[in-house]
Design a protein around this nucleic acid. Sequence first.
DNA 1: TTATACAGGACTAAAATGGTACTCAATTGA
DNA 2: TCAATTGAGTACCATTTTAGTCCTGTATAA
Lengths: 154, 154
Amino acid sequence: MLKLSRLTDYAAVVMAQIARHSQTSHAAADLAEAVQLPHPTVSKTLKMLARAGLLVSQRGAQGGYRLARPASQITAADIIAAIEGPVAMTECSQAEGDCELVATCGVADNWQRVSLAMRTLLESVTLAHLADTAPIKLPVQLPIQTISLSAVSA
Amino acid sequence: MLKLSRLTDYAAVVMAQIARHSQTSHAAADLAEAVQLPHPTVSKTLKMLARAGLLVSQRGAQGGYRLARPASQITAADIIAAIEGPVAMTECSQAEGDCELVATCGVADNWQRVSLAMRTLLESVTLAHLADTAPIKLPVQLPIQTISLSAVSA
DNA sequence: TTATACAGGACTAAAATGGTACTCAATTGA
DNA sequence: TCAATTGAGTACCATTTTAGTCCTGTATAA
Protein backbone atom coordinates (compact mmCIF):
# COMPACT_ATOMS: atom_id res chain seq x y z
CA MET A 1 0.00 0.00 0.00
CA LEU A 2 3.09 2.11 0.22
CA LYS A 3 1.63 4.03 3.06
CA LEU A 4 3.06 6.14 5.81
CA SER A 5 3.25 4.72 9.29
CA ARG A 6 0.67 6.00 11.68
CA LEU A 7 3.29 7.95 13.61
CA THR A 8 4.33 9.75 10.45
CA ASP A 9 0.74 10.59 9.81
CA TYR A 10 0.48 12.00 13.32
CA ALA A 11 3.68 13.93 12.80
CA ALA A 12 2.26 15.67 9.76
CA VAL A 13 -0.92 16.59 11.57
CA VAL A 14 0.96 17.91 14.57
CA MET A 15 3.41 19.85 12.44
CA ALA A 16 0.55 21.42 10.55
CA GLN A 17 -1.08 22.39 13.80
CA ILE A 18 2.09 24.09 14.99
CA ALA A 19 2.58 25.74 11.63
CA ARG A 20 -0.84 27.33 11.81
CA HIS A 21 0.12 29.07 15.06
CA SER A 22 3.80 29.50 14.61
CA GLN A 23 4.11 32.53 16.86
CA THR A 24 3.69 30.66 20.13
CA SER A 25 5.25 27.63 21.75
CA HIS A 26 3.12 24.55 22.01
CA ALA A 27 3.16 22.17 24.95
CA ALA A 28 2.86 18.50 24.02
CA ALA A 29 -0.30 18.20 26.09
CA ASP A 30 -1.98 21.10 24.29
CA LEU A 31 -1.15 19.64 20.91
CA ALA A 32 -2.42 16.24 21.92
CA GLU A 33 -5.65 17.86 22.97
CA ALA A 34 -5.92 19.87 19.77
CA VAL A 35 -5.48 16.94 17.44
CA GLN A 36 -7.27 14.39 19.65
CA LEU A 37 -4.48 11.88 19.97
CA PRO A 38 -2.97 10.20 23.03
CA HIS A 39 -0.54 12.42 24.85
CA PRO A 40 2.42 10.03 25.17
CA THR A 41 2.30 9.22 21.50
CA VAL A 42 2.25 12.85 20.46
CA SER A 43 5.08 13.48 22.85
CA LYS A 44 7.13 10.73 21.29
CA THR A 45 6.46 12.10 17.84
CA LEU A 46 7.49 15.59 18.90
CA LYS A 47 10.72 14.30 20.33
CA MET A 48 11.57 12.62 17.04
CA LEU A 49 10.78 15.76 15.09
CA ALA A 50 12.93 17.82 17.44
CA ARG A 51 15.82 15.42 17.18
CA ALA A 52 15.60 15.67 13.40
CA GLY A 53 15.93 19.42 13.67
CA LEU A 54 12.45 20.30 12.46
CA LEU A 55 11.28 21.59 15.83
CA VAL A 56 13.09 23.35 18.62
CA SER A 57 12.13 22.55 22.17
CA GLN A 58 12.11 24.78 25.19
CA ARG A 59 11.95 23.16 28.59
CA GLY A 60 10.35 24.52 31.70
CA ALA A 61 7.31 26.61 32.38
CA GLN A 62 5.93 28.32 29.28
CA GLY A 63 8.11 26.03 27.25
CA GLY A 64 7.06 23.82 24.41
CA TYR A 65 7.83 23.24 20.78
CA ARG A 66 8.04 25.57 17.83
CA LEU A 67 9.19 25.29 14.26
CA ALA A 68 12.92 25.36 13.74
CA ARG A 69 12.44 27.21 10.46
CA PRO A 70 9.59 28.63 8.39
CA ALA A 71 6.94 26.18 7.28
CA SER A 72 7.78 26.92 3.68
CA GLN A 73 11.25 25.50 4.30
CA ILE A 74 10.12 22.22 5.81
CA THR A 75 9.17 19.55 3.31
CA ALA A 76 7.03 16.45 3.46
CA ALA A 77 10.20 14.47 2.83
CA ASP A 78 11.73 16.04 5.95
CA ILE A 79 8.82 14.97 8.10
CA ILE A 80 8.78 11.45 6.72
CA ALA A 81 12.53 11.14 7.14
CA ALA A 82 12.31 12.34 10.74
CA ILE A 83 10.00 9.48 11.68
CA GLU A 84 10.77 6.69 9.26
CA GLY A 85 14.28 7.42 8.12
CA PRO A 86 15.30 8.47 4.62
CA VAL A 87 12.78 8.02 1.82
CA ALA A 88 13.81 4.93 -0.12
CA MET A 89 11.63 2.39 -1.80
CA THR A 90 13.83 -0.65 -1.52
CA GLU A 91 16.54 -1.94 0.76
CA CYS A 92 19.18 -1.27 -1.80
CA SER A 93 18.04 2.28 -2.36
CA GLN A 94 19.72 3.07 0.89
CA ALA A 95 23.34 3.83 1.42
CA GLU A 96 24.43 0.47 2.74
CA GLY A 97 24.31 -1.95 -0.15
CA ASP A 98 23.91 -5.03 1.99
CA CYS A 99 21.63 -6.78 -0.49
CA GLU A 100 23.29 -9.95 -1.70
CA LEU A 101 20.92 -10.36 -4.58
CA VAL A 102 22.15 -7.50 -6.69
CA ALA A 103 23.56 -9.95 -9.20
CA THR A 104 20.27 -11.73 -9.86
CA CYS A 105 18.04 -8.77 -9.13
CA GLY A 106 18.39 -6.69 -12.25
CA VAL A 107 15.96 -4.01 -11.26
CA ALA A 108 17.94 -2.24 -8.55
CA ASP A 109 19.14 0.62 -10.68
CA ASN A 110 15.75 1.41 -12.04
CA TRP A 111 14.06 1.25 -8.65
CA GLN A 112 16.57 3.71 -7.39
CA ARG A 113 15.63 6.11 -10.12
CA VAL A 114 11.97 5.77 -9.28
CA SER A 115 12.80 6.21 -5.64
CA LEU A 116 14.66 9.39 -6.40
CA ALA A 117 11.76 10.75 -8.38
CA MET A 118 9.46 10.06 -5.45
CA ARG A 119 11.79 11.84 -3.10
CA THR A 120 11.88 14.81 -5.42
CA LEU A 121 8.14 14.89 -5.40
CA LEU A 122 7.96 14.79 -1.63
CA GLU A 123 10.58 17.48 -1.35
CA SER A 124 8.48 19.76 -3.47
CA VAL A 125 5.63 19.69 -0.98
CA THR A 126 6.19 21.96 2.00
CA LEU A 127 4.63 22.07 5.40
CA ALA A 128 3.11 25.38 4.37
CA HIS A 129 1.22 23.52 1.67
CA LEU A 130 0.07 20.80 4.01
CA ALA A 131 -1.01 23.19 6.73
CA ASP A 132 -3.08 25.21 4.35
CA THR A 133 -6.65 24.20 5.01
CA ALA A 134 -7.58 25.10 1.48
CA PRO A 135 -6.61 22.71 -1.28
CA ILE A 136 -3.14 23.35 -2.61
CA LYS A 137 -3.67 25.97 -5.25
CA LEU A 138 -0.19 27.07 -6.05
CA PRO A 139 1.14 25.85 -9.35
CA VAL A 140 3.88 23.83 -7.72
CA GLN A 141 5.53 22.92 -10.94
CA LEU A 142 8.30 20.51 -10.47
CA PRO A 143 11.24 21.03 -12.77
CA ILE A 144 10.26 18.57 -15.46
CA GLN A 145 13.76 17.28 -15.89
CA THR A 146 13.99 16.09 -12.31
CA ILE A 147 10.90 14.00 -12.74
CA SER A 148 11.81 12.76 -16.14
CA LEU A 149 13.42 9.45 -15.42
CA SER A 150 16.01 10.11 -18.04
CA ALA A 151 17.45 12.90 -15.95
CA VAL A 152 17.45 10.98 -12.74
CA SER A 153 20.71 9.32 -13.42
CA ALA A 154 23.03 8.25 -10.66
CA MET B 1 11.21 4.98 5.07
CA LEU B 2 8.23 4.68 2.81
CA LYS B 3 9.59 1.51 1.40
CA LEU B 4 8.05 -1.40 -0.39
CA SER B 5 7.52 -4.62 1.50
CA ARG B 6 9.98 -7.34 0.75
CA LEU B 7 7.37 -9.36 -1.10
CA THR B 8 6.70 -6.43 -3.40
CA ASP B 9 10.36 -6.16 -4.06
CA TYR B 10 10.44 -9.85 -4.93
CA ALA B 11 7.42 -9.41 -7.14
CA ALA B 12 9.18 -6.76 -9.17
CA VAL B 13 12.25 -8.89 -9.59
CA VAL B 14 10.24 -11.92 -10.63
CA MET B 15 8.09 -9.95 -13.02
CA ALA B 16 11.18 -8.48 -14.62
CA GLN B 17 12.61 -11.96 -15.01
CA ILE B 18 9.47 -13.17 -16.75
CA ALA B 19 9.35 -10.05 -18.89
CA ARG B 20 12.85 -10.70 -20.17
CA HIS B 21 11.73 -14.08 -21.51
CA SER B 22 8.13 -13.45 -22.27
CA GLN B 23 7.86 -16.11 -24.98
CA THR B 24 7.91 -19.07 -22.65
CA SER B 25 6.03 -20.16 -19.57
CA HIS B 26 7.95 -20.10 -16.32
CA ALA B 27 7.53 -22.66 -13.55
CA ALA B 28 7.68 -21.26 -10.04
CA ALA B 29 10.66 -23.42 -9.22
CA ASP B 30 12.65 -22.18 -12.20
CA LEU B 31 11.97 -18.58 -11.31
CA ALA B 32 12.97 -19.15 -7.72
CA GLU B 33 16.20 -20.62 -8.92
CA ALA B 34 16.82 -17.77 -11.34
CA VAL B 35 16.38 -15.03 -8.80
CA GLN B 36 17.83 -16.95 -5.88
CA LEU B 37 14.89 -16.75 -3.55
CA PRO B 38 13.05 -19.45 -1.56
CA HIS B 39 10.52 -21.44 -3.63
CA PRO B 40 7.49 -21.10 -1.42
CA THR B 41 7.88 -17.39 -1.16
CA VAL B 42 8.22 -16.92 -4.90
CA SER B 43 5.23 -19.17 -5.37
CA LYS B 44 3.16 -17.09 -3.03
CA THR B 45 4.18 -13.94 -4.84
CA LEU B 46 3.29 -15.43 -8.20
CA LYS B 47 -0.13 -16.41 -6.99
CA MET B 48 -0.82 -12.89 -5.83
CA LEU B 49 0.30 -11.49 -9.15
CA ALA B 50 -1.89 -13.96 -11.00
CA ARG B 51 -4.91 -13.14 -8.88
CA ALA B 52 -4.36 -9.46 -9.64
CA GLY B 53 -4.48 -10.28 -13.32
CA LEU B 54 -0.87 -9.43 -14.12
CA LEU B 55 0.10 -13.02 -14.82
CA VAL B 56 -1.79 -15.95 -16.27
CA SER B 57 -1.14 -19.40 -14.94
CA GLN B 58 -1.25 -22.71 -16.65
CA ARG B 59 -1.41 -25.85 -14.56
CA GLY B 60 -0.01 -29.21 -15.36
CA ALA B 61 3.07 -30.38 -17.15
CA GLN B 62 4.75 -27.69 -19.25
CA GLY B 63 2.64 -25.19 -17.37
CA GLY B 64 3.80 -22.13 -15.53
CA TYR B 65 3.29 -18.41 -15.51
CA ARG B 66 3.42 -15.83 -18.23
CA LEU B 67 2.54 -12.17 -18.53
CA ALA B 68 -1.13 -11.42 -18.97
CA ARG B 69 -0.29 -8.48 -21.21
CA PRO B 70 2.79 -6.83 -22.69
CA ALA B 71 5.36 -5.54 -20.24
CA SER B 72 4.84 -2.04 -21.54
CA GLN B 73 1.26 -2.21 -20.31
CA ILE B 74 2.06 -3.29 -16.78
CA THR B 75 3.04 -0.50 -14.44
CA ALA B 76 4.96 -0.33 -11.20
CA ALA B 77 1.74 0.78 -9.58
CA ASP B 78 0.07 -2.43 -10.79
CA ILE B 79 2.73 -4.58 -9.20
CA ILE B 80 2.65 -2.70 -5.93
CA ALA B 81 -1.13 -2.83 -5.85
CA ALA B 82 -1.10 -6.57 -6.49
CA ILE B 83 0.93 -7.22 -3.37
CA GLU B 84 0.19 -4.38 -1.01
CA GLY B 85 -3.16 -3.11 -2.16
CA PRO B 86 -3.85 0.26 -3.74
CA VAL B 87 -1.16 2.89 -3.50
CA ALA B 88 -2.26 5.33 -0.84
CA MET B 89 -0.14 7.22 1.59
CA THR B 90 -2.53 7.56 4.47
CA GLU B 91 -5.47 5.67 5.87
CA CYS B 92 -7.86 8.28 4.64
CA SER B 93 -6.46 8.23 1.13
CA GLN B 94 -8.34 5.02 0.68
CA ALA B 95 -11.93 4.65 -0.25
CA GLU B 96 -13.36 3.91 3.14
CA GLY B 97 -13.18 7.09 5.14
CA ASP B 98 -13.11 5.39 8.50
CA CYS B 99 -10.79 7.94 10.05
CA GLU B 100 -12.58 9.70 12.88
CA LEU B 101 -10.02 12.45 13.09
CA VAL B 102 -10.89 14.21 9.89
CA ALA B 103 -12.24 17.14 11.83
CA THR B 104 -9.02 17.82 13.73
CA CYS B 105 -6.68 16.51 11.09
CA GLY B 106 -6.66 19.30 8.58
CA VAL B 107 -4.15 17.78 6.23
CA ALA B 108 -6.20 14.98 4.71
CA ASP B 109 -7.04 16.76 1.48
CA ASN B 110 -3.51 17.74 0.77
CA TRP B 111 -2.09 14.33 1.57
CA GLN B 112 -4.54 12.87 -0.89
CA ARG B 113 -3.22 15.15 -3.59
CA VAL B 114 0.32 14.14 -2.84
CA SER B 115 -0.76 10.53 -2.83
CA LEU B 116 -2.35 10.94 -6.21
CA ALA B 117 0.81 12.49 -7.61
CA MET B 118 2.80 9.53 -6.33
CA ARG B 119 0.41 7.14 -7.93
CA THR B 120 0.71 8.99 -11.21
CA LEU B 121 4.45 8.70 -11.01
CA LEU B 122 4.31 4.97 -10.35
CA GLU B 123 1.85 4.49 -13.15
CA SER B 124 4.26 6.10 -15.56
CA VAL B 125 6.90 3.46 -14.91
CA THR B 126 6.25 0.23 -16.77
CA LEU B 127 7.55 -3.26 -16.29
CA ALA B 128 9.36 -2.83 -19.58
CA HIS B 129 11.32 -0.01 -17.99
CA LEU B 130 12.11 -1.98 -14.88
CA ALA B 131 13.14 -5.09 -16.76
CA ASP B 132 15.51 -3.16 -18.94
CA THR B 133 18.95 -3.89 -17.58
CA ALA B 134 20.20 -0.62 -18.91
CA PRO B 135 19.24 2.50 -16.99
CA ILE B 136 15.96 3.95 -18.05
CA LYS B 137 16.82 6.15 -20.96
CA LEU B 138 13.49 7.06 -22.40
CA PRO B 139 12.40 10.58 -21.70
CA VAL B 140 9.41 9.46 -19.72
CA GLN B 141 7.99 12.89 -19.36
CA LEU B 142 5.02 12.97 -17.13
CA PRO B 143 2.33 15.35 -18.21
CA ILE B 144 3.35 18.33 -16.14
CA GLN B 145 -0.16 19.17 -15.19
CA THR B 146 -0.74 15.84 -13.50
CA ILE B 147 2.23 16.40 -11.27
CA SER B 148 1.51 20.02 -10.61
CA LEU B 149 -0.39 19.89 -7.39
CA SER B 150 -2.68 22.59 -8.60
CA ALA B 151 -4.13 20.25 -11.16
CA VAL B 152 -4.49 17.31 -8.85
CA SER B 153 -7.81 18.44 -7.57
CA ALA B 154 -10.39 16.02 -6.33
C1' DT C 1 12.26 26.48 45.26
C1' DT C 2 8.50 24.78 43.06
C1' DA C 3 5.60 23.86 39.21
C1' DT C 4 5.98 23.11 34.47
C1' DA C 5 7.43 20.71 30.55
C1' DC C 6 10.76 18.23 27.63
C1' DA C 7 14.43 14.10 27.39
C1' DG C 8 15.53 9.53 27.44
C1' DG C 9 15.06 4.85 27.95
C1' DA C 10 12.87 0.49 29.18
C1' DC C 11 9.10 -2.19 28.55
C1' DT C 12 4.79 -4.37 26.72
C1' DA C 13 1.19 -5.36 23.48
C1' DA C 14 -0.47 -5.76 19.06
C1' DA C 15 -0.18 -6.14 14.26
C1' DA C 16 1.98 -6.88 9.97
C1' DT C 17 5.14 -9.48 7.50
C1' DG C 18 7.59 -13.27 5.92
C1' DG C 19 8.23 -17.99 5.54
C1' DT C 20 6.84 -23.10 5.77
C1' DA C 21 4.18 -27.21 5.26
C1' DC C 22 0.67 -29.83 3.58
C1' DT C 23 -3.17 -31.18 0.73
C1' DC C 24 -6.02 -30.55 -3.38
C1' DA C 25 -6.83 -29.79 -8.40
C1' DA C 26 -5.66 -29.48 -13.24
C1' DT C 27 -3.06 -30.76 -17.28
C1' DT C 28 -0.08 -33.43 -20.21
C1' DG C 29 1.51 -37.37 -22.26
C1' DA C 30 2.98 -42.08 -22.15
C1' DT D 1 -6.19 -44.28 -17.60
C1' DC D 2 -2.39 -43.46 -14.75
C1' DA D 3 1.61 -41.05 -13.29
C1' DA D 4 4.29 -36.99 -13.31
C1' DT D 5 4.23 -32.23 -13.22
C1' DT D 6 2.81 -27.89 -11.62
C1' DG D 7 -0.21 -24.40 -9.76
C1' DA D 8 -4.09 -23.38 -5.92
C1' DG D 9 -5.53 -23.02 -1.45
C1' DT D 10 -5.18 -23.03 3.41
C1' DA D 11 -3.47 -23.08 7.82
C1' DC D 12 0.11 -22.10 10.76
C1' DC D 13 4.26 -20.22 13.09
C1' DA D 14 8.26 -17.09 13.73
C1' DT D 15 10.01 -12.76 13.36
C1' DT D 16 10.00 -8.03 13.01
C1' DT D 17 7.99 -3.72 13.19
C1' DT D 18 4.99 -0.54 15.12
C1' DA D 19 2.45 1.62 18.60
C1' DG D 20 1.71 2.86 23.01
C1' DT D 21 2.84 3.30 28.14
C1' DC D 22 5.44 4.35 32.12
C1' DC D 23 9.02 6.03 34.87
C1' DT D 24 12.85 8.82 36.04
C1' DG D 25 15.78 12.66 35.06
C1' DT D 26 16.73 17.54 33.83
C1' DA D 27 16.12 22.34 32.40
C1' DT D 28 13.58 26.64 32.93
C1' DA D 29 10.62 30.36 34.54
C1' DA D 30 8.11 32.57 37.94
